[in-house]
Computed example of a mutant assay.
Amino acid sequence: MSGPSRGLRRISILLLAAGLSPAVHALDFADCVQDALRQNPAMLEAHAQAAEAQGAVSSAQGHLLPKLTASFSASQSNNALTVFGMKLSQRRATFNSFGANQFDPNLGAAGLSIAPGNLDHPSGYHNFGTKLQLDIPIWNGGAIRGGIDEATAMLRAAQNGDRAARQKLIFEILQAYDGVVAAQSAIEVAEKSRKAAEAYVKTSRQLLARGVIVKSDLLSAEVHLEEAQLALQHARDQRENALENLAVLIGRAKTDGLEVGAPVMPSFPQGDLQQLQAQALADNAGILALREQLKAARAGITVARAAYMPHINAMANQEWNGTGLGNGAPSYTVGGEVSWAALDFARGGQVDSARAKVQLQLAKLQQAEDHLRVQLGQAWRAAQ
């Protein structure tokens, strides 16, 4: 241990031995905000939601790109069709696979009725298959692009929600921090009131002994002292409650050693009420999040309408099939597909549901904007 560390430890031991404790470092408002933003559960939840939305965007964008799939299979069968297919895919089919060795040309047309045993009743046969397949999306009625727009809007909504959660948390910390400061001031006032009440009781007893006042005056002074003591205890309880609230917000398990610094005096915003309301509607994170959710709901209509459109996709695969792992016969397949659901009664309900979600988000947005205007007006008038 270094010399300065030994010195600090010796001073702490001397203070404890003297019945004192080292000075407690008081947290100012900035310290409280920093601690809360780092570990408050509400902020961790908001960060997780933003990360989840970012993952949804990446997933939606991935549907635009080709998908390559690799697979390996091993199978054993005595099913006639399966065995013949295995032999064809391995390029091992022979005339005897059709039962050519059982055909007797001397029987003439009657020989054509002979059932070939090799073809109808094969013995067990196995196949090892390796396959690489490339699926290429070309156009899916706008479903992929609509899904990307929907996921992107939800990401922006989550980011604004993260900002709104940050602002809300800072406001809650401000209230809790100010609560501790106010409770501390209340304790100081209650302490002075208690001391004054004690002095008044002492004076009243002396005056009663001299016959200047009556007994009821002393009793009144004692009642006032009890009220002052009760007010002091109430102020101390309020401070403990405020400290516990602040400790929870900044992520501390206990209030031991928790002290706050100087009071916080936020500056009053410039502008009249109409200007502040316009600024709030333009920049409020919660309102912006709801607007992005509305955009996501509208993109959902595009996704639902894609069921009415043709879907065009292409594919290409390369296969190796053989009786062993090292003797596979290669083959390939390329193709494209155009599909169009001519009749599907479920898709109409999906479009109606997507439109209903848009109306729901419009209602939520309008309600939030009205509430924000009223709330801001009340706060502005109270501050004035």
Results as ranks from 00 to 15, higher is better:
residue 3 G to R: 12
residue 3 G to N: 06
residue 3 G to L: 15
residue 7 G to V: 11
residue 7 G to I: 12
residue 7 G to A: 13
residue 9 R to Q: 15
residue 12 S to N: 13
residue 13 I to P: 01
residue 13 I to Y: 03
residue 14 L to D: 12
residue 14 L to N: 08
residue 15 L to P: 09
residue 26 A to Q: 11
residue 31 D to E: 11
residue 34 Q to L: 07
residue 41 P to C: 01
residue 58 S to D: 10
residue 63 H to F: 10
residue 76 Q to M: 10
residue 78 N to D: 15
residue 83 V to Q: 00
residue 84 F to T: 04
residue 85 G to L: 03
residue 92 R to H: 04
residue 98 F to T: 08
residue 106 N to G: 11
residue 118 N to K: 00
residue 120 D to L: 08
residue 121 H to R: 12
residue 125 Y to G: 01
residue 141 G to K: 01
residue 144 I to E: 08
residue 144 I to K: 09
residue 149 D to Q: 13
residue 153 A to C: 03
residue 154 M to Q: 15
residue 156 R to M: 12
residue 156 R to Y: 06
residue 157 A to L: 01
residue 162 D to P: 00
residue 164 A to R: 13
residue 169 L to S: 07
residue 174 L to E: 15
residue 177 Y to Q: 09
residue 181 V to L: 09
residue 194 R to T: 14
residue 196 A to F: 07
residue 197 A to H: 04
residue 198 E to F: 04
residue 201 V to I: 00
residue 201 V to C: 11
residue 201 V to N: 07
residue 208 L to A: 13
residue 210 R to F: 14
residue 213 I to Y: 06
residue 221 A to E: 07
residue 230 L to G: 08
residue 236 R to H: 04
residue 237 D to R: 03
residue 238 Q to V: 00
residue 240 E to N: 11
residue 247 A to G: 03
residue 252 R to E: 04
residue 257 G to P: 05
residue 259 E to F: 04
residue 269 P to K: 05
residue 274 Q to E: 14
residue 276 L to R: 14
residue 276 L to C: 04
residue 279 Q to V: 03
residue 281 L to Q: 03
residue 283 D to S: 15
residue 284 N to E: 06
residue 293 Q to P: 00
residue 294 L to A: 08
residue 297 A to W: 06
residue 300 G to Y: 09
residue 309 M to H: 11
residue 309 M to S: 13
residue 310 P to E: 04
residue 326 G to K: 13
residue 329 A to R: 06
residue 331 S to I: 02
residue 340 W to Q: 12
residue 340 W to L: 15
residue 342 A to N: 07
residue 343 L to I: 13
residue 345 F to N: 05
residue 346 A to L: 09
residue 348 G to L: 00
residue 352 D to E: 13
residue 356 A to N: 01
residue 358 V to I: 09
residue 358 V to T: 14
residue 359 Q to C: 00
residue 361 Q to H: 11
residue 362 L to Y: 03
residue 363 A to L: 05
residue 367 Q to Y: 10
residue 369 E to I: 00
residue 372 L to R: 10
residue 373 R to D: 09
residue 375 Q to H: 10
residue 377 G to S: 02
residue 380 W to S: 06
residue 383 A to I: 07
